[in-house]
Design a protein around this nucleic acid. Structure first.
Lengths: 258, 258
DNA sequence: CGTGATAAG
DNA sequence: CTTAACACG
């Protein structure tokens, strides 16, 4: 089973840049999208029909602000995933952040983790989000479920995960607080799959600022991740960063289970 | 002497669409621009230098709202026009609407007349503007000056001046009130030069809505005009609408004096 | 429908 | 630098 996650930075934008071609080439089994930034009804009708024919679609735009954030999860119809919008916590759910999808004992939790924002004005919000989400993960583990947590986590866990760690210790995405909070997910029994398998490989990034050719020079950050229950690690066939896929300031990432 | 007026709908926008080429081909002696929608400092430095080398420039952006309205008058340096920003009435001057330029007994008053706006919410403002401006024109006439009044007047004076008069009697730019107020300028001793010379020619328009190919079908309005003192009429060599000049939803108009 | 400001990333 | 909402025309 092949899982994908992609922050598309505007679904309507990425649609104009060949999203459907990518989807048909890639045929993910389960796909999480972040920053969809539109209602389902704002998507081209032909595209909606086409997607609906193949996928169970959970479209979860923000209700708090038009054109902001939002996430979606699509799963191949034949897989029979059940999708639930939100974590049951209004502050996050109003921004369309996380979708919880289940099949048997597998829980796929995916979406758009908060950005600490300029001046770190949303750092408190983001910290609470991490605490709440880690508790939810721990609860699933206690219940005997296996968890995949993915999406744009808006944090680079370690120095190796961004090109300019020294310059960014006070910037959103690489503050000590965000890095500390990232460990809550690990403490809840999850592992950062790509880093487990590539403990010392630098230059593995999933996001590059649009300013000044950062992507061409691979001056980026690894902030889109697949975390899985440690008990799932030996079922991982492959995990990858698809940096060649354009259309957004993020690239897609994938996880294949045996 | 050749006078031009053009609502450029954003000077930076029209700059990207060949404004400088048009200027070099056209070489107006005096040029009024409306809806410049930027500060002088926001214009490309090379362009500023180039313009400043040939013209006395009066750049008059709105101070009330960034990127809104504003007007400019440029006159060939050798002509020695003196330019004054505004009519001395704060409500209009804060929006950078009118510039008064003088040379000897000639007064060139040019700029961006108010739009009555959706729901006619600014009709009272526009009516007061017309009264005030007509009084200023009358005062110049009393003082023995000759007046050229031009710009985007945001009113089509007569049914012949727009393609769909019947559909627009309640719409901004063709209400009975705006048409009545237009006559205040005539009552102050001015004449609508193009209409004087072409009393029955339909299809002479200077603005076309950007929606749905109106310009290609010439479904437009004549709302950019040259009015002159009646005593100036026999000095008019030519007046024209340059509908072939693209770059804005308005086209330039011109008046040549002998 | 297009220009420009603005919020957000 | 880019997406999208918005104000204004």
């Amino acid at each position: 089973m092949r899982f994908y996650s992609w922050n598309v930075n505007g679904f309507r934008s990425v649609m104009k840049k060949g999203f459907m071609d990518w989807l048909e080439e890639t045929e993910p089994d389960v796909l999480s999208l972040q920053e969809i930034r539109c209602e389902w009804e704002e998507v081209d009708l032909g595209v909606r029909r086409q997607l609906e024919s193949a996928y169970d679609i959970c479209w979860f735009p923000a209700t708090s602000k038009k054109g902001y954030a939002g996430s979606a999860t699509l799963s191949k119809k034949e897989l029979g995933f059940s999708h639930t919008k939100g974590l049951g916590i209004d502050g996050y759910d109003a921004e369309g952040r996380m979708i919880v999808s289940k099949k048997d004992k597998l829980v796929f939790i995916a979406g758009y983790f908060p950005n600490a924002s300029q001046g770190l004005v949303r750092l408190p919000f983001k910290r609470q989000f991490a605490k709440d989400l880690a508790a939810i993960v721990a609860k699933h583990h206690k219940a005997g479920h296996q968890v995949i947590l993915t999406g744009d986590m808006n944090v680079a866990p370690e120095e190796i995960d961004l090109a300019r760690p020294k310059d960014n210790t006070k910037n959103p995405g690489f503050t000590p607080e965000e890095r500390e909070d990232f460990k809550l997910y690990l403490g809840a029994g999850l592992a950062d799959v790509l880093r487990e398998r590539n403990p010392t490989t630098p230059g593995l990034y999933t996001w590059w600022t649009a300013r000044g050719g950062a992507r061409e020079r691979n001056v980026g950050w690894r902030i889109d991740l697949f975390l899985t229950s440690r008990t799932l690690l030996d079922q991982v066939k492959e995990t990858a960063i698809h940096a060649d896929v354009l259309g957004s300031d993020h690239c897609p990432i994938s996880l294949e289970l045996k």
